[in-house]
Protein backbone atom coordinates (compact mmCIF):
# COMPACT_ATOMS: atom_id res chain seq x y z
CA UNK A 1 0.00 0.00 0.00
CA UNK A 2 1.41 3.37 -0.98
CA UNK A 3 1.76 5.77 1.94
CA UNK A 4 -0.22 8.99 1.59
CA UNK A 5 2.71 11.18 2.46
CA UNK A 6 6.31 10.72 1.53
CA UNK A 7 8.18 9.12 4.46
CA UNK A 8 10.49 11.53 6.28
CA UNK A 9 13.37 9.20 5.55
CA UNK A 10 13.09 9.86 1.82
CA UNK A 11 13.10 13.62 1.81
CA UNK A 12 15.61 15.84 0.07
CA UNK A 13 18.73 15.82 2.19
CA UNK A 14 18.57 12.30 3.53
CA UNK A 15 20.62 10.94 0.70
CA UNK A 16 24.22 10.23 1.51
CA UNK A 17 25.17 11.16 5.04
CA UNK A 18 25.46 7.54 6.08
CA UNK A 19 29.25 7.64 6.24
CA UNK A 20 29.16 10.55 8.72
CA UNK A 21 26.81 9.05 11.28
CA UNK A 22 23.86 10.84 9.69
CA UNK A 23 25.29 14.35 9.94
CA UNK A 24 24.70 16.75 7.06
CA UNK A 25 27.69 18.90 5.95
CA UNK A 26 26.29 21.80 7.97
CA UNK A 27 25.96 19.61 11.06
CA UNK A 28 29.51 18.29 10.59
CA UNK A 29 30.76 21.86 10.51
CA UNK A 30 28.77 22.66 13.66
CA UNK A 31 30.33 19.65 15.39
CA UNK A 32 33.81 20.89 14.52
CA UNK A 33 32.97 24.34 15.93
CA UNK A 34 31.63 22.89 19.17
CA UNK A 35 35.00 21.70 20.54
CA UNK A 36 36.77 25.11 20.70
CA UNK A 37 33.57 26.61 22.11
CA UNK A 38 33.76 24.10 24.97
CA UNK A 39 37.28 25.16 25.96
CA UNK A 40 36.43 28.84 25.62
CA UNK A 41 33.39 28.24 27.83
CA UNK A 42 35.53 26.74 30.61
CA UNK A 43 37.86 29.78 30.60
CA UNK A 44 35.03 32.33 30.48
CA UNK A 45 33.16 30.53 33.29
CA UNK A 46 36.17 30.92 35.60
CA UNK A 47 36.55 34.62 34.76
CA UNK A 48 32.78 35.12 35.16
CA UNK A 49 32.75 33.46 38.61
CA UNK A 50 35.62 35.71 39.71
CA UNK A 51 33.88 38.83 38.31
CA UNK A 52 30.60 38.05 40.11
CA UNK A 53 32.48 37.45 43.35
CA UNK A 54 34.35 40.76 42.97
CA UNK A 55 31.33 42.81 41.85
CA UNK A 56 30.33 45.63 44.21
CA UNK A 57 27.34 45.17 46.50
CA UNK A 58 24.18 47.09 45.73
CA UNK A 59 23.35 49.65 48.44
CA UNK A 60 19.62 48.82 48.49
CA UNK A 61 19.40 45.07 47.83
CA UNK A 62 22.74 43.78 49.04
CA UNK A 63 24.11 40.42 47.82
CA UNK A 64 20.86 39.22 46.26
CA UNK A 65 21.23 41.87 43.54
CA UNK A 66 24.05 39.70 42.13
CA UNK A 67 21.32 37.51 40.60
CA UNK A 68 21.34 40.28 37.97
CA UNK A 69 24.45 38.67 36.44
CA UNK A 70 22.60 35.42 35.72
CA UNK A 71 18.88 36.19 35.36
CA UNK A 72 18.81 38.53 32.29
CA UNK A 73 21.45 36.47 30.39
CA UNK A 74 19.19 33.43 30.84
CA UNK A 75 16.32 35.46 29.37
CA UNK A 76 18.44 36.44 26.34
CA UNK A 77 19.39 32.77 25.87
CA UNK A 78 15.73 31.76 25.95
CA UNK A 79 14.83 34.41 23.36
CA UNK A 80 17.74 33.31 21.16
CA UNK A 81 16.65 29.67 21.37
CA UNK A 82 13.15 30.51 20.20
CA UNK A 83 14.50 32.73 17.41
CA UNK A 84 16.65 29.79 16.26
CA UNK A 85 13.53 27.60 16.31
CA UNK A 86 11.74 30.08 14.07
CA UNK A 87 14.70 30.49 11.68
CA UNK A 88 15.21 26.71 11.49
CA UNK A 89 11.49 26.27 10.85
CA UNK A 90 11.43 28.91 8.13
CA UNK A 91 14.48 27.37 6.42
CA UNK A 92 12.80 23.97 6.60
CA UNK A 93 9.64 25.37 5.00
CA UNK A 94 11.64 27.20 2.33
CA UNK A 95 14.33 24.65 1.46
CA UNK A 96 12.90 21.41 2.86
CA UNK A 97 16.17 20.65 4.65
CA UNK A 98 15.84 18.25 7.55
CA UNK A 99 18.97 19.53 9.26
CA UNK A 100 17.23 22.91 9.63
CA UNK A 101 14.26 21.16 11.23
CA UNK A 102 16.65 19.44 13.64
CA UNK A 103 18.23 22.82 14.42
CA UNK A 104 14.74 24.16 15.22
CA UNK A 105 14.19 21.32 17.72
CA UNK A 106 17.59 21.99 19.33
CA UNK A 107 16.90 25.72 19.67
CA UNK A 108 13.52 25.03 21.28
CA UNK A 109 14.87 22.52 23.78
CA UNK A 110 17.80 24.66 24.93
CA UNK A 111 15.56 27.74 24.85
CA UNK A 112 13.03 26.04 27.12
CA UNK A 113 15.85 25.05 29.49
CA UNK A 114 17.06 28.67 29.66
CA UNK A 115 13.47 29.93 30.04
CA UNK A 116 12.91 27.43 32.89
CA UNK A 117 16.03 28.67 34.65
CA UNK A 118 14.91 32.26 34.12
CA UNK A 119 11.59 31.32 35.73
CA UNK A 120 13.46 29.75 38.65
CA UNK A 121 16.04 32.47 39.27
CA UNK A 122 13.45 35.27 38.91
CA UNK A 123 11.21 34.05 41.76
CA UNK A 124 14.29 33.45 43.96
CA UNK A 125 15.21 37.11 43.43
CA UNK A 126 11.57 38.16 43.94
CA UNK A 127 11.34 36.27 47.25
CA UNK A 128 14.36 38.14 48.56
CA UNK A 129 13.27 41.60 47.40
CA UNK A 130 9.46 41.62 47.04
CA UNK A 131 8.92 39.13 49.86
CA UNK A 132 7.00 36.66 47.67
CA UNK A 133 7.89 34.12 45.03
CA UNK A 134 5.45 35.11 42.32
CA UNK A 135 3.22 37.95 41.21
CA UNK A 136 0.80 37.97 38.27
CA UNK A 137 2.68 40.92 36.89
CA UNK A 138 2.53 41.46 33.06
CA UNK A 139 6.21 40.54 32.47
CA UNK A 140 6.06 37.39 34.59
CA UNK A 141 2.76 36.29 33.08
CA UNK A 142 3.93 36.71 29.46
CA UNK A 143 7.18 34.90 30.29
CA UNK A 144 5.20 31.98 31.70
CA UNK A 145 3.05 31.98 28.55
CA UNK A 146 6.19 31.96 26.37
CA UNK A 147 7.52 28.99 28.35
CA UNK A 148 4.23 27.09 27.88
CA UNK A 149 4.16 27.81 24.13
CA UNK A 150 7.61 26.33 23.51
CA UNK A 151 7.10 23.51 26.01
CA UNK A 152 4.05 22.61 23.89
CA UNK A 153 6.31 22.72 20.82
CA UNK A 154 8.60 20.13 22.42
CA UNK A 155 5.65 17.96 23.47
CA UNK A 156 4.32 18.16 19.91
CA UNK A 157 7.67 17.00 18.55
CA UNK A 158 8.06 14.15 21.01
CA UNK A 159 4.51 12.76 20.84
CA UNK A 160 3.64 13.15 17.17
CA UNK A 161 6.59 11.20 15.77
CA UNK A 162 8.78 12.08 12.79
CA UNK A 163 7.38 13.12 9.44
CA UNK A 164 7.16 16.10 7.10
CA UNK A 165 3.64 16.99 8.23
CA UNK A 166 4.73 17.28 11.87
CA UNK A 167 7.83 19.22 10.84
CA UNK A 168 5.80 21.66 8.73
CA UNK A 169 3.22 22.21 11.45
CA UNK A 170 5.94 22.64 14.09
CA UNK A 171 7.78 25.14 11.86
CA UNK A 172 4.67 27.31 11.50
CA UNK A 173 3.92 26.99 15.21
CA UNK A 174 7.51 27.97 16.11
CA UNK A 175 7.33 31.08 13.91
CA UNK A 176 3.95 32.21 15.32
CA UNK A 177 5.18 31.67 18.89
CA UNK A 178 7.90 34.22 18.23
CA UNK A 179 5.32 37.01 18.46
CA UNK A 180 5.52 36.64 22.24
CA UNK A 181 9.18 37.71 22.39
CA UNK A 182 8.76 41.42 21.50
CA UNK A 183 5.56 41.41 23.56
CA UNK A 184 7.50 40.01 26.52
CA UNK A 185 10.30 42.53 26.09
CA UNK A 186 8.09 45.61 25.76
CA UNK A 187 5.24 44.52 28.05
CA UNK A 188 6.48 46.78 30.88
CA UNK A 189 6.27 49.84 28.61
CA UNK A 190 2.93 48.68 27.18
CA UNK A 191 1.53 48.55 30.72
CA UNK A 192 2.91 52.04 31.32
CA UNK A 193 5.42 50.94 33.96
CA UNK A 194 2.72 49.59 36.30
CA UNK A 195 4.69 46.35 36.45
CA UNK A 196 6.48 45.19 39.62
CA UNK A 197 9.29 43.86 37.45
CA UNK A 198 12.14 46.36 36.97
CA UNK A 199 12.45 48.17 33.61
CA UNK A 200 14.55 46.74 30.79
CA UNK A 201 18.25 47.43 31.21
CA UNK A 202 19.66 50.30 29.20
CA UNK A 203 23.17 51.54 28.57
CA UNK A 204 24.46 53.22 31.72
CA UNK A 205 21.63 51.94 33.94
CA UNK A 206 23.95 49.70 35.95
CA UNK A 207 25.96 50.97 38.90
CA UNK A 208 29.74 51.47 38.92
CA UNK A 209 31.66 48.20 38.53
CA UNK A 210 28.56 46.22 37.54
CA UNK A 211 28.98 46.47 33.78
CA UNK A 212 31.84 43.98 33.41
CA UNK A 213 30.27 41.16 35.47
CA UNK A 214 27.06 41.66 33.52
CA UNK A 215 28.90 41.52 30.19
CA UNK A 216 30.80 38.40 31.31
CA UNK A 217 27.53 36.81 32.43
CA UNK A 218 26.10 37.36 28.97
CA UNK A 219 29.25 36.01 27.32
CA UNK A 220 29.44 32.93 29.56
CA UNK A 221 25.79 31.98 29.27
CA UNK A 222 25.87 32.87 25.56
CA UNK A 223 28.74 30.44 25.00
CA UNK A 224 27.00 27.80 27.13
CA UNK A 225 23.90 28.31 25.01
CA UNK A 226 25.77 27.92 21.70
CA UNK A 227 27.64 24.87 22.98
CA UNK A 228 24.45 23.14 24.12
CA UNK A 229 22.56 23.94 20.90
CA UNK A 230 25.41 22.53 18.78
CA UNK A 231 25.62 19.40 20.94
CA UNK A 232 21.84 18.91 20.91
CA UNK A 233 21.82 19.34 17.13
CA UNK A 234 24.44 16.62 16.72
CA UNK A 235 22.58 14.29 19.09
CA UNK A 236 19.33 14.80 17.16
CA UNK A 237 21.03 14.02 13.84
CA UNK A 238 22.63 10.86 15.22
CA UNK A 239 19.39 9.77 16.93
CA UNK A 240 17.36 10.14 13.72
CA UNK A 241 20.06 8.34 11.74
CA UNK A 242 20.14 5.44 14.19
CA UNK A 243 16.35 5.15 14.14
CA UNK A 244 16.39 4.91 10.36
CA UNK A 245 19.18 2.36 10.34
CA UNK A 246 17.22 0.21 12.79
CA UNK A 247 14.07 0.58 10.67
CA UNK A 248 16.01 -0.60 7.60
CA UNK A 249 17.40 -3.60 9.45
CA UNK A 250 14.00 -4.74 10.73
CA UNK A 251 12.56 -7.57 8.64
CA UNK A 252 9.40 -6.73 6.66
CA UNK A 253 6.22 -7.89 8.32
Amino acid sequence: MTPMTKPFSQTKDDSAHTTNGGLSPLEQQATRWRQPFGWLLVVITLVYAWAVFQAPLDHTQGVIQKILYVHPPLAYGAYLGFVITAIGGLLYLWRGREDCDRLAISGAEVGVLFCTLMLVTGPIWARGTWGRWWSWDPRLTVTLLLWFVYLAYLLLRSFSGPGPRTARFAAIYGVIGLVLIPLNYYVIEIFDNRSMHPDNLERGSLGDGMGWPFLLGNLCLGFAFIYLVLLRWEVEARRVFQQRQEALEEPDT
Partner: peptide, 12 residues
Protein backbone atom coordinates in the same frame (compact mmCIF):
# COMPACT_ATOMS: atom_id res chain seq x y z
CA UNK B 1 19.06 33.32 47.67
CA UNK B 2 21.89 34.49 45.40
CA UNK B 3 23.86 31.28 45.97
CA UNK B 4 20.72 29.21 45.30
CA UNK B 5 20.12 31.00 41.97
CA UNK B 6 23.69 30.38 40.77
CA UNK B 7 23.75 26.82 42.08
CA UNK B 8 20.48 25.83 40.39
CA UNK B 9 21.59 27.37 37.07
CA UNK B 10 25.02 25.74 37.10
CA UNK B 11 23.66 22.34 38.18
CA UNK B 12 20.93 22.32 35.53
Amino acid sequence: YAIAAYFVTAAA
